[in-house]
Computed example of a mutant assay.
Amino acid sequence: MFIAGFPAGSFQANCYVIGGERGGDALVVDPGQDASERLSSVLAEHRMRPVAVLLTHGHLDHVASAAAVADAAGIPAYLHGADDYMLDDPLAALSPGAGVMLAGMDLTGLRPDTVLTLTDVEELRLAGLTLQIDHTPGHTGGGVVYRIGADGDRPEVLLTGDTLFAGSIGRTDLPGGSTEQLMASIATHLLTRGDEAVVLPGHGPTSTIGDERRSNPFLT
């Protein structure tokens, strides 16, 4: 299995490239602000061919380059239906002062040509991988976690977006957020995984479920 990642743009949202093997098909997860150039370099270096863009949720910092990446490669983007509106009106999902902070940033053209909904989808088979899809509302109404099962010595891999971070959890004060829902999502879909499961979050360093279970102040 191949995994590479890098933080993109001023928001430093983690963009991941994942595939069954180096030199094969690839999934691009959460291509955020200004991710395209770095992403192209990663794909070229490892001879990967993108076949889909996977979005953990609809916030701007995770989808800003989704259309550019998906449309250039002629591939679909996957997003839960509850967050679909954010592609057309990103400010509707942000704080009231976000418009001032984002002044000068082009907020148009965020919708890829092909957007496939993850609503009621429990599994995807792409790029030589089988991904389980867990709907994890709380940070946004349409947040999801992508799970890739353990294989031999490789532990389970969890792409948690902004649901769970190393030492923290996603904020719930934005439109569509709910602390109660987020904690229920984490308890149901993440804390039920094995301690060795690797957490690839939407921001910050990687972790494991065991480390978060033991030391995350929001969960202990």
Rank of each mutant, 00 (worst) to 15 (best):
F2Q: 07
I3G: 07
A4V: 02
A4T: 10
F6N: 14
F6I: 06
P7I: 02
S10D: 13
A13L: 03
I18W: 01
R22N: 11
R22K: 14
R22H: 08
A26V: 08
L27S: 00
L27G: 03
V28D: 03
V28Q: 07
D30A: 10
P31E: 09
P31W: 05
Q33D: 10
D34R: 15
A35R: 08
S36C: 00
S41M: 10
R47W: 01
M48S: 08
R49F: 07
V51K: 01
L54P: 07
L54K: 08
T56G: 10
T56L: 01
H57A: 06
H57G: 13
G58P: 11
H59E: 12
H59D: 15
A64C: 13
A66P: 08
V69R: 11
V69S: 03
A70Q: 01
D71A: 07
D71M: 13
P76A: 02
A77V: 04
Y85M: 03
Y85E: 07
D89N: 15
A93G: 09
L94T: 05
P96Q: 05
M101C: 12
L102P: 13
A103G: 04
D106V: 12
T108L: 11
T108Q: 12
R111S: 09
P112G: 02
D113A: 15
D113V: 06
V115I: 13
L116C: 12
T117N: 07
L118C: 05
T119C: 03
D120K: 04
D120W: 00
V121M: 11
E122I: 02
E123W: 03
E123T: 06
L124E: 06
R125D: 08
L126P: 07
T130G: 09
I133H: 06
T136G: 01
P137C: 08
G138D: 04
G138P: 09
G138W: 04
H139Y: 12
H139R: 05
G141I: 01
V144C: 10
V144T: 05
Y146G: 09
A150G: 14
G152V: 07
G152T: 07
D153T: 12
E156T: 15
V157S: 10
L159S: 04
L159R: 13
G161D: 00
F165V: 01
F165G: 00
G167R: 09
I169Y: 04
R171F: 11
R171Q: 15
P175E: 14
G177I: 14
G177T: 14
M183E: 05
M183Y: 14
M183C: 05
A184S: 09
S185G: 15
A187K: 15
T188G: 10
L190C: 02
L190I: 15
L191P: 08
T192V: 13
T192Q: 05
R193V: 02
D195M: 03
V198E: 13
L200H: 10
P201M: 00
H203N: 14
G204Y: 05
P205R: 06
T206S: 09
I209T: 12
R213Q: 10
R213H: 09
R213F: 03
R214V: 04
R214E: 10
F218G: 08
T220C: 05
T220N: 07
